[in-house]
Design a protein around this nucleic acid. Structure first.
Lengths: 259, 259
DNA sequence: TAGTGGTCTAGACCACTCC
DNA sequence: GAGTGGTCTAGACCACTAA
């Protein structure tokens, strides 16, 4: 056992554990940082010191360091050392969660297709989908409901291309899981998402059975194909009282991404 | 040069480049996935095949694989192989950005302290800060403004502890950067964040010079000390027309986190 | 010059899956 | 048993920083 700056004896890794050595190093260092053994701005022991303390090879401690850097817990600069970072709200990432910890995805969630039509693109649609005005597009309207009522209202425009199976596939979707996982995702390369607060329009309020002007989250999405052309543009209107984004800054106790 | 499933000749890594080998492997594989050389669900070449193709050691290709898994582009399962993942909106992470790509942080942003008071905790505050009702708390109100007007309204409750320098430090903050980076962040361990859509109350509308009921984003935050006790609870009310969260799903062309 | 982080290798061993 | 992903080592080399 070595000593940390605050004088307490330190943990070491357990070779008999199922947990990989690099993960144990990550966990132990995270804990010590979280407990204040190393304060914000403080320098961590050097790689060789950590290698000696944990009795692991350089690659293993290096991997742990990389993970901690990835998570934003420490920063490393060549030739100087690794340092503990403070909290920074600017770096917070949020994930969409449903409120009331009810299942966002599951059999109790119904997706109903309200409308499927072929329209001609107006200026706005043409710009978003990078097509010329007047071209034909598929227009879809969906209502996503839980047992206690509708929670999301979805509108989407897709470029009309008979050769593309995407439209057919999209029409078959009856679960939110299918919608979110992109059943039509075959043939799609990437998606850009935007999220903002809006007030319900009359149409949206009618669909969601809420008063006009109620707050809601608007999740806009544009999907691109492999040639980087927009294929679909749409947005979900989510009842504010059902959806909330969660984030966290600082070291995580539980297991996160690996590296 | 080997062949990919679609028959095009493949790139290889450049040993003379400044870009590390593992990063090149990540970049090349991401590109090939993005271009459709490997479709969603398809199996990537095995580690030994990739090792041979790129003429690198196992550790290097393994590191690249780990990064791709971290980014959610591929999934790996032991004994079976690595597979290309489709788009999955559930995994999208959002980051808070200001609209109109104007600087969220910078000298043009003013933070004005509207009120600093000592109150006794009511039921709600006591529960959030995990203290007993009636204890004294510091109450702060701030207005964050850009040259064209107020954009955020901040309220915060902090446990009153004369020994703790956090309160003093908080009062000195005059920039949003200081507020977000946590000048009082010394002594804080982590923070939990929540984000939802709300309608402006009378008080908020008054502060932000907007009509009552206008949509806004509410960014709630709770910060904890090293003993995992809540220290501060507050929330930013952000004008919806000034803030938007951006996310993306799918392979990224630009450089992201390393591992 | 000494210490730091950063990259990379060649090969070993294990656990898992599928035939 | 053959092939897969997953972990780990011991040591090499490089680039950067600071005294």
């Amino acid at each position: 056992m070595n000593d940390t700056p605050n004088g307490t004896s330190t943990l070491n890794i357990n070779r008999d554990s199922d947990e990989p050595a690099y993960a144990q190093v990550v966990r132990i260092l995270s804990q010590e940082i979280a407990e204040g053994a190393y304060r914000a701005g403080a320098q961590l022991p050097s790689e060789s010191q950590l290698r000696a303390r944990f009795s692991v090879s350089g690659m293993t401690v290096r991997r742990a360091i990389n993970i901690l850097v990835d998570r934003g817990i420490i920063s490393a600069s060549q030739g100087k050392g690794t340092f503990v970072r403070g909290l920074d709200m600017r770096e917070a990432a949020f994930r969409l969660r449903e409120r009331h910890d009810s299942p966002l995805l599951g059999p109790s969630v119904q997706v109903r297709l309200l409308q499927a039509a072929i329209l001609t693109a107006d200026e706005r649609i043409a710009r978003k989908l990078d097509i010329s005005r007047g071209k034909r597009v598929v227009y879809l309207r969906r209502l996503i409901s839980q047992p206690d009522g509708p929670v999301m209202y979805h509108r989407e425009y897709m470029v009309y291309d008979p050769r593309r199976p995407t439209v057919e596939a999209e029409l078959q979707i009856t679960s939110l899981e299918g919608l979110f996982r992109g059943q039509g995702g075959q043939g799609l390369r990437r998606g850009d998402l935007g999220l903002e607060a809006v007030a319900l329009s009359e149409e949206e309020a009618d669909a969601l059975q809420m008063p006009v002007g109620s707050p809601a989250l608007c999740l806009e999405h544009i999907f691109y194909d492999f040639e980087n052309h927009p294929v679909a543009w749409g947005w979900f209107i989510c009842r504010a009282d059902h959806f909330r984004l969660l984030g966290r800054i600082g070291p995580e106790t539980s297991l996160g991404a690996e590296s």
